[in-house]
């Protein structure tokens, strides 16, 4: 985890920049669907693959990746026992991968299968 800090530094900034428009879009999109039922929302995603499902998938991918590398910095900063640090790095990657995969699969399932 210690080497090649620059790639990490650049990735963190690029994902942060990408999240600005994605997060703003997401908040406004959710606000405009305030009273929707579950079925309405599924229809909203499935019915607009280019303008909803793809931005949503990007938000999920970029968001979980950004979360993982951000938490990595915090673990490196504050955890002093090398074994525990290694374990938390693994757990961090694992949680981000699993949560990201579930979210991405849900979007694919709603858009293409449901």
């Amino acid at each position: 985890m210690a080497k090649h800090g620059t790639a990490h530094f650049i990735a963190q900034r690029i994902t942060a920049l990408a999240l600005v428009p994605l997060a703003i879009w997401f908040v406004f999109a959710l606000l405009s669907h305030g009273g929707d039922t579950r079925a309405d929302l599924m229809e909203w995603i499935a019915g607009h693959p280019w303008s909803v499902a793809i931005p949503l998938a990007m938000l999920v991918l970029v968001g979980f990746y950004h979360m993982r590398i951000g938490l990595e910095v915090i673990i490196d900063d504050y955890i002093h026992k090398p074994d525990l640090r290694g374990m938390l790095h693994f757990l961090n990657t694992f949680v981000a991968l699993v949560a990201g995969a579930i979210a991405l699969w849900s979007i694919i399932a709603i858009t293409l299968i449901a």
């Binding site: 985890m1 080497k3 800090g5």
Partner: peptide, 11 residues
């Protein structure tokens, strides 16, 4: 210097 600790601990 290209190292998470040597340089990039500067926050």
């Amino acid at each position: 210097l290209d190292d998470n600790f040597r340089l990039y601990r500067c926050h």
